[in-house]
Amino acid sequence: MSSLVIWALLWEIIGRMDLTFFIPPLSHVIVTLFDIIGTPAFLKALSETGYAFFGGVVASIVIGIPVGILIGKSRLLDEMILPWVNIFLSAPLTALVPVLMVLFGFGMTSIIITTTLFAIWIIILNTRAGVMQINRSMIEMARSFGAKPLEAFFKIYFWAALPEILGGVRIGVIRAVKGVIIGQLLISIVGFGALFELYSSNFLMTHFWAVLVVLFAMAFSISEVLAYLERRVAYYAAKR
């Protein structure tokens, strides 16, 4: 990671050389960043984005994990639903955004659904994989001790599949970050989408880059934190 300093330096030099209007020096970008970070426009964009992001992530976790457990347990449901999960996992979901726009309007709902659509499929798929690798003896143990189906669902399957589920959630969250930004770019009157529109139409390059830096840094931190959490439960996967 230390090499990022070199890239930052390179950026600064290219910016200072005035080669192109589109790459202002990094130092100017950082200064601008501190200028705009407290402004109402930025905070509004951030809170709107955060709202849509968390909405989408929560929805995909709350729906995705039970669906994943369900299809992992039932062969019939698996065979009926899995093809669709695989389709949506690899489909260019950007094409669906116009549909969401006409159905749910140019607002928050569409963005939340876009985010959910980006995140949910991998969560379902990983949860399914996690459930399917559970030891038969673990399931028989639950049954022999008289666990009821719902109890088994939450007390056995969820915990036994936890490492895979967390892996799915991590990838899902990274995809959600991309989804929320793509949603906002296409429905460009909300959040950072609106901010990008404003800055680029006024040619405020340093402002634009400042927002990008914040955004990329946040996305990277989120993915690193989740990777760290996943490593924390790695012991668990090994010892099952």
Binding site: V180, I182, L185, L215, A219
Partner: peptide
């Protein structure tokens, strides 16, 4: 780049 929402570069 893998973690970041690179789509945000489009306006640029």
């Amino acid at each position: 780049m893998q973690a970041a929402p690179l789509a945000a570069l489009i306006p640029l």
